[in-house]
Design a binder for these strands. Structure first.
Lengths: 230, 230
DNA sequence: AGGTGTGAACGTATTCACAGCA
DNA sequence: TGCTGTGAATACGTTCACACCT
């Protein structure tokens, strides 16, 4: 089954799960939560696929990589599946997040309810600007970026979120890495250079719009081709 | 070369460009802008690949889909390449964006400098809350969501950005689609049901953290395996 | 030399279709 | 009968390696 062999069966190793599958797991989890995991009811791959926007075959294959726990002829028990996915994603623990950069985006992130509700606690907030240092946002007081290194150790921080301007992003990443952080979420529109052991995910808001632009452009081209040529 | 045949050569059809390639084009473009397109200097695939974090082979292949314009033994002329990519992405025109939902995230998006600088103008802002309607953010006054439908036509809006809570997202999407919008950027953590002709891109901030969680978890597992088993 | 453009090889992801179990 | 779990088939994406041009 899995490449690991077959010493014991169910939860299955997190290695060998295709990255494409991993990227869909949070969506499955979100849909399951939205269903409300009241008592021991089940859901079919068809039904869960419908609300998550994937095909049922893909969903079944994805879940099979987790050593899935469906019952033939019935479906997946919601609470069991929820646990399975949470465990695979490593969401059985809390993560402590450092947020760096308190511009408008950083302020929005600091208050984003989706973080806390999914087990990510913003443990500390930093900026370099004297105007912002000391100011309060939600429960937190913005600290000087120079305190970052110490805070990571003292506050047991696991994840760094960079919401600085592009020009500061690499320096901040270097500080985070020196402090021992190995997972970074980067909102600055630039590529970070990091050691292999560090995982960076990047969110570039403008890129998303540019991709929509491509599709608009593409649709327009197709229309004009059809209209003109025939 | 391209599936289209060979009537004329260079700019190449936007169809038949692999989606994986399209998704990298904005990053190439950003890197080219960051280089500063002073006069007619060139860049090699090796150099551009380095700053964009891809392999040079992949970069060359990606660019070849655009009917690329490199010179063997020399490289790509920066300004020409910039144009080629911009044209492919449909960035030769301005887009007018409607932003719906003026919570903290919406406020940050309204002021995000990366939109305007890349040709996306926020043309109108909407919310459903009476507390927010009429308030000013940047140059804009928040309008009642009921005005959305009319505004899309009057203000020639092409793209809708949803920054509402999850509960309102589908309704807002329906309004946008009724008004004729075919491109939506969705920040609400839910799947939107839309006709095939409508393109939705979704950004879920919590999902990004959950994916980092997976990697942290994975690394921890690997460590414990190594430590224990040998 | 130096660096692009690209077929061919490889690897990964998705879909199909059905055996097998409740 | 109904729905999972999964091999086999297909489609897609990436890497390799080299012919070809300047």
């Amino acid at each position: 089954m899995t490449t690991t062999g077959d010493r014991t069966s169910p939860p299955a190793a997190t290695h060998s799960i295709p990255t494409a599958t991993v990227q869909r797991l949070p969506e499955y989890l979100r849909a399951l939560h939205a269903l409300g995991d009241t008592d021991g009811d089940t859901i079919s791959s068809e039904a869960l696929a419908a609300v998550t926007g994937v095909s049922s075959a893909m969903l079944r294959k994805d879940l099979s990589y987790l050593g899935a726990a469906g019952v033939r002829g019935v479906g997946y028990e919601v609470s069991l599946l929820t646990n399975r996915i949470s465990t695979t994603l490593g969401l059985t623990r809390y993560y402590r997040v450092a947020l760096i950069g308190m511009g408008h985006l950083g302020q929005a992130l600091a208050r984003y309810p989706g973080f806390a509700s999914r087990g990510f606690h913003i443990a500390a907030i930093f900026d370099a600007s004297p105007d912002l240092i000391g100011s309060r946002h939600g429960n937190h007081i913005v600290r000087d970026i120079s305190e970052l290194s110490g805070a990571v150790g003292e506050e047991d921080i696991n994840i760094g979120v960079i919401a600085t301007p592009e020009t500061a992003a690499q320096q901040v990443a270097d500080l985070l890495i020196d402090a021992g952080i190995t997972s970074i979420l980067n909102f600055a529109p630039c590529v970070l250079t990091v050691p292999q052991s560090v995982v960076v995910r990047k969110v570039d808001l403008a890129v998303e719009l540019q991709l929509l632009s491509f599709h608009e452009h593409h649709k327009a081209l197709q229309r004009s081709e059809r209209d003109q040529q025939l």
